[in-house]
């Protein structure tokens, strides 16, 4: 099974197996990273699933929508690699992608 590498807020990292048909947020959540709140459950409405994505994979992930862009604007930790993880569908091509949980706003 392809895997996703998740770096938590303390900098510790762990590779987790990622099943088909899930979003990156769902993979992180189901792996038990409770510091990611994902309060709206993936409705692109809360920005608490913010991650920084390995730029090497930037070309392979779903493009950012306007709602996501607006929500990220509200985050102090936004940078060029910021994404809402619920808006990225995990596909086998993303095997080995590293995401870092953004700092709490």
């Amino acid at each position: 099974m392809p895997s996703l590498v998740i770096v938590d807020r303390s900098g510790a990292e762990r590779a987790v197996a990622a099943g088909p048909g899930l979003t990156v947020m769902e993979v992180i959540r189901d792996a038990g990273f409770d510091e990611m709140l994902a309060l709206c459950g993936g409705c692109c409405s809360c920005a608490t699933c913010h991650v920084h994505v390995d730029p090497a994979f930037a070309g392979l992930i779903d493009a950012m929508g306007a709602d996501e862009n607006d929500l990220l604007d509200g985050s102090a930790d936004r940078d060029a690699n910021s994404r809402l993880s619920c808006q990225i569908r995990f596909t086998p091509q993303l095997d080995g992608m590293r995401v870092t949980l953004a700092q709490d706003d």
Binding site: G21, L22, E26, G41, C43, C44, S45, A66, D67, C86
Partner: peptide, 18 residues
Amino acid sequence: DKPHTNMRALVNTLFTPS
């Protein structure tokens, strides 16, 4: 499980901010 995540994916896009 999967029946939930599948159907949930349809619902997640409905009440977006825009």
